Computed example of a mutant assay.
Amino acid sequence: MKEVSVYPDSNRKKKLEAFDRLLTIMDQLRMLCPWDQKQTIESIRHLTIEETFELSDAILEGDLQEVKKELGDIMLHLVFYARMADEQKAFDIADVLNGICDKLINRHPHIYADVQANDEEAVKANWEKIKLKEKGNISVLGGVPKSLPALIKSMRIQEKARGVGFDWDNKDQVWAKVEEEMQEFKQEEEAGNHEKATEEFGDVLFSLINYARFKNINPEEALEKTNRKFIKRFQYLEEASKKEGKQLGDMTLKEMDVYWEAAKKLK
């Protein structure tokens, strides 16, 4: 392995001491706390998922103090899983950390070996090829988790296909595909073929996600921003109309639209 020089971290000792403190507390909780003693790898899985979404919320809100808090919660879970696995003689936290270190070194041959990668695309391509070789997957797409939300899964599928060279040449080709898929959806929808229209609508979404990738837009982030914008405006509509003694269920769409337009002017 090629030797890589890094700047010394003046706070490294402090960081190691903090991690050691967490490991010690985890050991104490597992030995002394009735709730912690009762937990299994399976029982805290749903809690980990919840903590991950809470971290995502903090990131989207740009609240770094909340990000710090949520990272701590997730770090606790990671240490918890490793502690329980250690009890079963399966692996421990050192195995986990060494495993990810080995993987990072192996997947960055442009840093730790003599492979050339002068831009982000080359790094991604190398990563996918090495990953495919490591896992022995029959398909390039074999590493995409089946349970991923559909939008994120589409992004990962397209990224992996691009990693082995299966991709459009430019954004104009992709947009032409978007327009083609929209036309096909419209034809099936107008024909009253619901099942086929549903399939074509999926194609429209997939091609739009593809176009977003070419424009360096994260569709998950873009959609979430729109969700939050809609919520903010709709809640203004609710509050403003209520102050004037109106009920949404009794209002016409035209009346509600007055408040909606007012909400759009707010920052």
Rank of each mutant, 00 (worst) to 15 (best):
M1S: 15
S5A: 14
Y7A: 06
P8E: 08
R12E: 07
K13H: 05
K14Y: 12
K15N: 00
E17C: 02
I25F: 01
D27P: 01
W35Y: 15
W35I: 06
Q37D: 02
K38I: 07
I41W: 08
I44F: 15
R45D: 08
R45C: 01
H46F: 11
T48S: 09
T52D: 03
F53M: 13
F53W: 12
E54C: 01
L55I: 07
D57W: 06
D57F: 00
I59K: 01
I59C: 09
E61K: 14
D63H: 03
L64T: 10
E66H: 01
V67T: 06
V67F: 11
K68D: 08
G72W: 08
G72A: 06
I74Y: 01
M75K: 09
L78E: 03
V79K: 05
M84V: 04
A85E: 11
E87S: 04
K89Y: 11
D92P: 04
A94W: 07
A94Y: 11
L97M: 14
N98R: 11
G99A: 04
D102Y: 12
N106Q: 13
H108A: 12
H110D: 15
H110M: 13
A113P: 01
V115I: 14
E120P: 00
E121L: 08
K124N: 12
A125Q: 11
A125V: 04
N126F: 14
K131F: 11
L132E: 00
G136R: 09
G136A: 04
G136Q: 02
L148T: 13
P149S: 10
P149L: 15
A150E: 02
K153I: 09
M155W: 04
R156V: 05
I157L: 07
Q158F: 00
E159H: 11
R162A: 15
G165P: 06
G165L: 01
D167G: 06
D169T: 00
N170H: 04
K171H: 12
K171I: 09
Q173K: 00
V174K: 02
V178G: 05
V178R: 00
V178A: 10
E180P: 00
E184G: 05
F185D: 02
Q187R: 14
E188L: 15
E189F: 09
E189K: 11
E195K: 13
E195I: 10
E195Y: 05
F201V: 01
V204S: 06
V204M: 05
F206Q: 00
N210C: 03
N210L: 08
Y211M: 05
Y211L: 01
R213E: 14
I217W: 10
I217N: 07
N218Y: 07
E221H: 15
R228V: 03
K229I: 01
K229R: 14
F230E: 13
F230P: 07
K232P: 02
K232C: 05
R233G: 03
F234H: 05
L237H: 08
E238Y: 07
K242T: 13
K242W: 13
K246Q: 08
K246V: 01
L248P: 06
D250P: 09
M256D: 03
M256Y: 09
M256W: 07
D257W: 15
L266G: 04
L266S: 03
K267M: 08
